[in-house]
Design a binder for these strands. Structure first.
Lengths: 204, 204
DNA sequence: CTACATAGAAACCGATCGGTCTTTATCTTG
DNA sequence: CAAGATAAAGACCGATCGGTTTCTATGTAG
């Protein structure tokens, strides 16, 4: 009957179990939403028992926060891949990247948690710094990308967050009312608009 | 001890109770969110018993849908008030109106339900037509407002929905990460951008 | 190998969920 | 008024929730 008598250190067991729990939490929020992501659901998906769960996380909230941090970290990692060569990107590439990340399955975790945070003070308090540092990271990268082109930094920040918000709203609405043609047209227009805007400002 | 022996017709009792239930549902979603809006919560807020609730609504979902429809109807009514005189509005007024409606407390019901719908097929199916007709109403009004200025209808629709999505995303993020100065600057820039865009297109 | 600490399993708990059922109050109809 | 229909109350139900507790398995240190 064997079983798996693979010998692992305590540290290995610990991090592996934590990893399985966080991954299961992300997947569960993706697939069944924030509120149906119960501890039972997470345990079933991860194959970890409640006892195991509570050894590493003091509450459901702790696990949710860990999942949110992991999602933010993945966004960050995607940025690293994007500008690995250090060559500045065009506005079209940036918008395409932002849109793809926002529409990425992992990002629905962000939407779910963000909306839940509105009415859950504990969650909101702990999510706020994560949200803030995620935006700081994004904006800093955008500013760095356009460095030396004479674009006002504030405007770069405003433009990039505005585009993100637009894709956020579009994505959320598209779950219940998808309009692929309109969404494609929006992407096209956004590229044209922001490109023209960039040229105008750089020309000044 | 009296009580309230006010005589009402069955129709009056019916519509009054339904109204109280829908209103309580909207308030509850606003204040405690979609998922904590339980039947117990709704009954407590409305002063109606579970028996009374289930006389008029076959399930929690039915009541949620009724609340969503009411929220959409209120958006519609706000439009009626806005253009009561029939005079076309400027882009600044339109954006201000859109932003105010999206940030209005009642609209959080829409966000909550929209996000919940992603993972609840029953809700999504029934919310889809409501969402669609709400957008059709909004876009039709926008198109009507700019009639005769030579603006392509598709572009008007695209612009208005894009602005809405941008304010949607901004609003949702602002619950956990409010940035009043950035949000004000965004509004200002949006007005300038869309106004310039409108002039360019009308001039063609 | 022993003693101890950490990791993990699983039964268990009170509270709350959406929904049902039985009973009572109120209104309508003749 | 009486008889029937509709409205509303609230006790009740099984399922599930987050969390606790008890107990076992596994790794670590001497």
């Amino acid at each position: 009957m064997s079983a798996t008598p693979v010998r692992r250190t305590q540290e290995q067991r610990r991090t592996e179990t934590i990893g399985k729990l966080v991954e299961a939490t992300i997947e569960s929020i993706e697939q069944v939403g924030y509120h149906r992501t119960s501890l039972g659901e997470i345990c079933a998906r991860s194959g970890v028992s409640k006892g195991g769960l509570f050894r590493h996380f003091g509450s459901r909230l702790d696990l949710i926060i860990a999942a949110a941090e992991e999602v933010a970290a993945r966004h960050s990692a995607a940025f690293d891949d994007l500008r690995a060569d250090g060559v500045p990107l065009g506005i079209d590439d940036i918008l395409a990247f932002a849109r793809a990340r926002i529409r990425h399955e992992t990002n629905v975790v962000w939407f779910e948690v963000l909306v839940a945070a509105r009415t859950e003070p504990d969650l909101r308090e702990r999510l706020a710094p994560i949200t803030q540092s995620l935006y700081e990271m994004i904006e800093a990268r955008a500013v760095a990308n356009f460095e030396g082109l004479g674009l006002p930094e504030d405007l770069v920040r405003l433009a990039v967050t505005s585009a993100i918000h637009m894709f956020d709203g579009e994505t959320i609405v598209s779950y219940s009312y998808p309009r692929p043609e309109v969404e494609a047209a929006r992407m096209k227009s956004a590229v044209e608009l922001f490109t023209a805007l960039g040229k105008d400002l750089a020309a000044e």
